[in-house]
Amino acid sequence: MESAKKGKTQSKQPPRHPLDDWLRTDRMPHIWCPGCGIGTAFSACLSAMAATGLPKENFVMVSGIGCSARGAGYANVDSYHTTHGRAIPFATGLKLANPDLNVVVFSGDGDLFAIGGNHFIHAARRNVDLTVVCVNNYNYGMTGGQVAATTPHLAKTTTTPRGNPENPFNIPLLAFAAGAAYVARWTMLHARDLMDSIEEALKKPGFSFIEVLSPCPINYGRRNKEKALDTLHIYQEQTIIKNGAHPAELEGRQDGKIVLGKFWDVAKPSCNELYEKTCRPDFGKDHAA
């Protein structure tokens, strides 16, 4: 961000970014490394929140632990930076206690799919009305680049110095199988598609899941001969958009390409709605709050 030049400035106000109202500008600079993709994913998420036109005070951002999870601390809405892996059950409590809240979980792949994997599948099964944005950078960035549940087979990390002997999750398939109402995957380079997708997910009742592929040049790229720009080239040249592709077909690559798009979007009653219908059909529309 350029600072306003002193002297002949036409306005006394510093330049404003369209997202300034949604950002805790007093917390800048952020912690993310040069070349990191989280900021772009985060910006798409805030832009989507703004674009919905829904009341700002009803948005809540919840995160766990890790680089992506620090996003909650920069969002100028009620924001809760919780424990490692537990953003989703915390968010479930918020949403069930006050159904008027629009709860966004913004966190990383290690947080949501390793330590928090159990919570993810159960929130999807219950169809809790949350929008979960997972920044997938294939590793644990904050702790210096360890293997994750999303690290590709044979990729090098500090805890797989000979290459990853394990296979990664196909996370859109996991979300689909567990019962999510909305499943999409983009890269941070596809910022406009990503933003549109998050906006759609925010407006949709039920459990929405969006995976965002994002470079981690410092901790992942460095050990896998992938500079930040190389990763962006992969996102540009080695991806293909296939809306409606079956999540089971997303494992690894298809014809050498990573498949992106909106894979699943169905209408089904949310957790709150089912609770009201099942547990107090005569109660009217009152809720806990």
Binding site: T82, P89, F90, T92, G93, K95, A97, N98, H119
Partner: peptide, 22 residues
């Protein structure tokens, strides 16, 4: 609202979340 969570880790997280919702 009553919810049976997937484990006690989640149960504790959910009550903290609900409390933050007032």
């Amino acid at each position: 609202v009553f919810i049976q969570m997937e484990d006690e880790i989640a149960a504790m997280a959910s009550i903290a979340g609900a409390s933050c919702a007032g």
